[in-house]
């Protein structure tokens, strides 16, 4: 399959060594994108209340966490034990596993910026894209969205509310991109040359340790373009060839090791290169 090339490629470099796992990004993401809090009973649906409980948030396979923070550890015993936190948005792959499998073109990668779209009114909810994505970046609406009474007054204008039965995922807060382009036009800036920080997703903005750097990977003036080339940078599951637009970086070798599978013996070159240089 061909990889589509774009002039702008929005991407992230997430410095794992700076993520403390606080959760602010996940909360901001949910608030920005109108993801309803997980409540177990729908007071307006008596039949549902009588027959079934909606999900408990500790069932992590039923959440709608577009951005999910994984906890990694080095597997060593006390006191050498170490932990790291890895926030996982949608990777916006250059060669996405999810896009070609969708039977109804409800997800596509064809817009300048390289963000993989998800068209909720088109999605039939077959979940084939979820089966295809090895990052588990895609989420299914198992229930109708439900806010505690009154809380839907605080809905964000930036994301339409999805009905049950469709798949959704991180889109780098796409509405913010649209608004940034509009703002740029008003201010006489070329929307194809947005300055760094002109458009940032909610998680990037919220992160108190600045662990997520966001920008145009193709624009040498943007920090991400340089950081992505750092010897400490890597991408998740690079061997699969999905060409993600999200990079990670860590000075810890064990963290970089866990970015890909090496059971068959080889180690990816990024890990080797960096460990030779620094360890």
């Amino acid at each position: 399959m061909q990889v589509k090339e774009f002039k702008i490629k929005w991407g992230m470099v997430i410095d794992i060594d700076k993520c403390s796992g606080c959760g602010a990004c996940m909360v901001s993401c949910q608030v920005e994108n109108n993801i309803a809090p997980m409540t177990q009973e729908d007071p307006h649906n008596h039949l549902q209340m009588m027959t079934t409980k909606r999900d408990d948030p500790s069932n992590k396979l039923r959440t709608l966490t577009w951005l999910n923070v994984y906890e990694l550890n080095n597997g060593k015993a006390f006191p050498e034990h170490d932990v790291a936190y890895l926030p996982r948005p949608c990777m916006q792959c250059g060669h996405p596993a999810c896009v070609p499998v969708c039977p109804v073109v409800a997800t596509d990668k064809n817009e300048e910026g390289g963000i993989v779209s998800q068209i909720y009114p088109r999605c039939i909810g077959c979940r084939y894209c979820m089966a295809a994505c090895p990052y588990h970046a895609r989420y299914f609406n198992w229930w109708d969205p439900l806010w505690p009474d009154g809380m839907d007054k605080t809905l964000s204008p930036n994301a339409s509310v999805r009905p049950r039965g469709v798949v959704e995922k991180c889109n780098f807060c796409h509405t913010r991109y649209m608004k940034a382009k509009d703002r740029a036009r008003e201010e006489g800036i070329d929307p194809m040359e947005l300055p760094e920080g002109y458009y940032v997703p909610a998680c990037v903005e919220a992160c108190p340790t600045g662990a997520i750097v966001f920008g145009d990977l193709n624009n040498p003036e943007h920090k991400v373009a340089q950081l992505a080339k750092s010897p400490h940078s890597f991408r998740l599951l690079e061997k699969l060839g999905l060409d993600p637009q999200v990079y990670y970086m860590s000075k810890r070798e064990w963290v970089r090791e866990q970015g890909d599978n090496h059971a068959a013996g080889d180690h990816n070159s990024a890990v080797k290169q960096a460990s030779q240089g620094h360890e």
Partner: peptide, 25 residues
């Protein structure tokens, strides 16, 4: 509808804690 950090405030510099990120709901 939402909160973001305040870049101009030295206490925040754009950052936000997980409780206050959920202050509006």
């Amino acid at each position: 509808y939402s909160t973001t950090g305040d870049e101009d405030n030295p206490l925040s510099k754009g950052g936000l804690c997980p409780i206050c990120a959920d202050a509006v709901p």
